[in-house]
Nucleic acid binder design. Structure first.
Lengths: 213, 213
DNA sequence: TGGTTTCGATACTTATGGTTCCGTATGATG
DNA sequence: CATCATACGGAACCATAAGTATCGAAACCA
């Protein structure tokens, strides 16, 4: 329904590839300067030295434009084998933390709200971003099972929430400093390992009844 | 700077308390019907059977209005002593999960975006919501230390992110079903306990260097 | 060369939120 | 009981901005 694919050109002037870059740069700049809510299409066009038509030819709506610019840049690396489950988790975690901390302030919450306001955007988000995340995560878990570190893989969705959630909460719910992210991620790796391995040994913690009332 | 406090009335017609309720109901209804983004002040006024002036007399802006309506209803219970750290954590977790799952779909992300778009709102959010959350959490931790379940309390902020984050991610980042929330929360309690107690015993996991490249 | 599509630029339509009037109602103060 | 300050519902007004349409020119293919 949108003119996102320009591929089958049966003649006609081809798209200027430099325009896409100019739009993306303008969006990122303005996002940093005026914030998510105050970004206007007119400003993007002016900043990019481009007509509004050129923008709407590529992105059906303002929300899609921002989505495209922000999500396009996110290449969730394929997570090369780091040798151990712990190392793999730490690597993915660092990647996720970076992808959330690097956009201009307020960008991620704004984008998330727009995604939830438009079912089509939510589908694209699921297909483009979440799917890749799920894939790398199950990949890592399968690897750990193959290594013998895990007997049974845990629910990938639970693990995903456990990894991504605290990072998001740290930055956008609790508004804690990004500088302290490493401390959080290291704790997260421990937590994730604790979840994945059913129970290392006889730990003195299933003592729901030993404490006084 | 806003006219939120009407207290010191030196004569004059007092506010009609029923108006506040009508506004709140209208906001919640419309949030459920048309979603966060498509909510308009005119509709709120019409639905509440109220003039727009009555709304702006109470809430300086649309964002503040929604914030007030949504956050006012959140009374983070004081977390009575459930006897064990595990039980206390489970109780708080259930409370948090409910407060996030109950508002109409899209409401929480929308509100979060607005909060991050306005520093004043973010301050109020911190003072009104986060502070209570921090307080109950440290309370629970202190209790556990007093019980002897913990030697040293962990960073409350980290624990907070670990509890709230996955719930949020489950619902609004991964778009998983709210029905499966209990499974997540139970896993979260385990993870939190694993974080709080430094290390139960010699676990076979700090093997970062033993594996081949 | 002709047809098609893109380009930057501009004008236009439409929708909506914030604000400010209005005339009226209500209650406290004295 | 009279006055005054503030509340009320309703409606008008203004500014902003998303999205569309149009324009003349340029680029590419057949």
């Amino acid at each position: 329904m949108s003119a996102r694919k320009q591929a089958r050109n049966q003649g006609g002037r081809p798209r200027d590839g430099r325009v896409d870059g100019a739009i993306a740069s303008a969006v990122l700049d303005l996002l940093a300067e005026v914030g998510y809510a105050r970004l206007t299409m007119g400003e993007v066009a002016a900043r990019a030295g481009v007509g509004k038509a050129a923008i709407y030819r590529r992105h059906a709506t303002k929300q899609e434009m921002i989505f495209d610019v922000l999500v396009q840049g996110q290449f969730l690396a394929v997570a090369p084998d780091r040798g151990s489950l712990r190392a793999d988790l730490a690597a993915v975690l660092a990647e996720i933390a970076d992808s959330m901390a690097s956009p201009p302030p307020g960008t991620v919450p704004g984008l998330l709200a727009d995604i939830h306001a438009d079912p089509a955007l939510l589908d694209r988000f699921d297909a483009k971003y979440l799917d890749a995340q799920r894939r790398t995560l199950t990949e890592i878990l399968d690897r750990a099972v193959a290594r013998g570190e895990l007997t049974t893989g845990p629910d990938p969705a639970v693990l995903n929430a456990l990894l991504v959630g605290p990072i998001f909460a740290w930055l956008f719910l609790l508004s804690e400093s990004p500088d302290q992210l490493p401390a959080l991620t290291s704790a997260l790796v421990d937590a994730a390992l604790a979840i994945t391995s059913p129970r290392p040994a006889a730990a003195p913690d299933d003592s729901d009844s030993e404490v006084a009332t």
